[in-house]
Each structure stands twice: as C-alpha cells, then as structure tokens.
Design a protein around this nucleic acid. Structure first.
Length: 303
RNA sequence: GGUGCGAUGGCCGAGUGGCUAGGCACAGCUCUGCAAAAGCUGCUACAGCGGUUCGAUUCCGCUUCGCACCU
C-alpha cells in the first residue's frame, strides 16, 4: 500500500552505486514498500538481448514492480544521455500523477546527472560530424584536433583534458555544429526539477564488492553469457556493445584470447568500472551511503 | 655431500658501477548528448651480511633460499 508523502512535491528516489552492489534488490524492496514504479538509469540495461551481461532485473524482479527503460529498445537504436533526459522527464511527469514516489536506479553517472540536473541546450549528437572528426583523429592525430579547438574555443581549450580524444571531439562537434564556442553554451547551472530528489548510494567494503563482482561474473557465465554474446556478436560495432562482458567475449570468439582469459578480463574490467562509478558518485555531497541491507534506514531518509 | 645456475616492488619481467625500464594488479582522480565510453595521476624494488670503490641493485666473498645436474 502506497505511503503518503511528507512533502507537497512528489519524490524521486535516486539509487546509485557501483556495479554489483545490490542496487536492483534495494530498488525492488523500496518499490514494494513505497508502491513506486522504477525507472532505470543504466545506459546498458535499456537494450534488448543483453539481459545476462548487463545484469538486468530477472523475470521475478520485473514482476515485483513496474519497470521502465529496461530492455525497451533494440541495440540498433541507441539512447543518448540527452535523449534519455527528455524521455525520462516526460515519463516522470506521467508517473507522478499517480505515484508520490518513483525510484530511479542505475549506475550510469552521466545519465543520472542528465535526469537529475539536465544539460545545457547544446546541439544534439550529429553522426555525420562525429564520423568526420573520428576520421580526422585517425589521419591527422589528436594534436591537430586540439589545435582546431584552440582556435574555435580557447576558453574551453584551457580546461579540457587535451589528452582525451573523446572530450576534444565532443567540444569540436558542438563548436562546428552550432557555429559558437562550446564554452559559451555551458552555463554550469543545474536545471530545476518539479520534484524532490533523495539520493541513496549503495556501497560496501571494497574487498567485499570485488568478491561479489567476481562471483557474479561466474554466475553470468553459468547463466549463458557466452551464448548471449555470440548472438549479438554480428553487431559488435554498435555502441551498445562497447560494454564490459561482451567486448572481452568477442575477443575470445575471434581467437585473440582463451575463454578463461576473457572471463578474467570481464572480472577485472567490471572491478575497474565499479571504481570509476564510485569516483563519479562520491562527488555528489548529498548522497546517503548505505549498505544494501539497510532498507529501513533508506526509508527513514526518504520519508 | 659436490658442481652449476638463479634470487629485482603485490605479481610478471628487463637492466645498469653513479642517470628511479616496462607491463599487470591496486589506489586516487577527470567528465554537460558514443559514458559499462574516453582519459589523467600515484605506486622508487633490487634476499641477508661483509668487502672493493668517492659511490654497489650492478664487482668479490660468505650465509640463506630455490632450481638443475652429479655422487
């Protein structure tokens, strides 16, 4: 039975944390107690055909609460963070008409921020321009792109990580697509949201987390990850498959390593991913960090 | 018991009489539409004890340990 809200505004319960920390179980238990639907903020669980490797909620878990943004689109239709922001806000608008609480759960930091704080008005992703820039990176090298950025947007050139092709290319993409410097379009302001947000971080001691991650990879293999990866292998170039658990198995399929090596790499890369997630989530000061068993404490914080 | 070879950081692994290889693991960090992506930083070890030398991880001796062979 849904609980009554203590605030006039509806509440978005934002659950973050590293991969393997037990976010999904926490979200379902909270959904049950709050009568809340769940939207995913996981940029890989959006896609169909990746159920095992992206640790999507199981059939039973999906039945325990209404889920959105889980396996609701094919891998051939990528959802960018900006598009996600728009789609998710429209959905929340609808959900809050019937529910005082909605739960957002997932580990994709950029997507969580898109949902909670929004982006500035920037040109949307332009595939053609991206392809051109990628080709130029390959032929002219990063230095040339950095120089162009220096010309088009000296202010952003000052602060950008100039060793990072992805960041340099994105800045150039915005400059070229809009005809204006990227820095002039970055306000650094957070968008106002018509709902209250409570952020809960799920974490545990590092060695325990790493052990869970390692064991979960073994469980994924037992559950048929290899066959799942083989089924999407023909699409390996797709962005949705630049993903831990698939990249490594593709290498195995192509004879670049043994299966044992691939599995070890999946574990290692999952641990590294978890570490980067923690770095991202730790910088948000208003996060209430809990262990995955502290459901009652989570409710106290929410209500 | 004898002979030979070896002993390098959590692991693998080069190398040198003075100038901190490198890789992996691990840790910290960056991040406004490809983000499970893409990057940055940190991590000075040469088995022990003597000796030679201005200076030894590097040369010499002994000890300990490991490996191989011999008896």
């Amino acid at each position: 039975m849904p609980m009554t809200t203590t605030s006039s505004k509806p509440t978005l319960v934002v659950i973050v944390g590293p991969t393997g920390s037990g976010k999904t179980a926490v979200s379902i238990e909270l959904a049950r107690r709050l009568g809340a639907p769940i939207i995913s903020t996981d940029s890989r669980q959006f896609y169909q055909g990746l159920a095992i490797g992206t640790a999507q909620p199981t059939t039973e878990e999906l039945a325990a609460a209404t889920h959105y943004f889980i396996a609701d689109r094919p891998i051939t239709e990528p959802l960018s963070a900006g598009e996600y922001e728009r789609e998710a806000l429209l959905l929340l608008d609808k959900l809050f008409k019937e529910h005082p609480f909605v739960i957002a759960v997932g580990g994709s930091g950029l997507y969580v921020d898109a949902l909670c704080y929004g982006f500035d008005e920037l040109p949307t992703a332009n595939d053609e321009l991206r392809a051109t820039l990628a080709a130029r990176l390959a032929s002219e090298g990063l230095k040339s792109l950095v120089e162009e950025l220096h010309n088009l947007d000296p202010e952003y050139w000052e602060v950008v990580d100039r060793a990072n092709p992805a960041r340099v290319m994105r800045a150039l993409e915005v400059c070229l697509a809009s005809g204006k410097p990227y820095s002039a379009q970055r306000s650094g302001k957070r968008s106002e949201r018509p709902f209250r947000m409570v952020r809960i971080g799920v974490d545990m001691p590092r060695d325990v987390l790493y052990d869970r991650i390692n064991r979960r990879v073994d469980m994924m293999m037992e559950a048929g990850l290899e066959a799942e990866a083989r089924a999407v292998w023909p699409h390996k170039h797709l962005n949705a498959l630049q993903t831990v658990g698939y990249k490594e198995l593709f290498d195995y399929f192509e004879g670049n390593c043994t299966l044992t090596e691939a599995v070890e790499l999946i574990k290692r890369n999952s641990r590294r991913y978890a570490k980067r997630q923690l770095t991202w989530f730790r910088r948000h000061e208003q996060t209430h960090w809990l262990s995955p068993t502290e459901i009652d404490k989570a409710l106290e914080i929410i209500l």
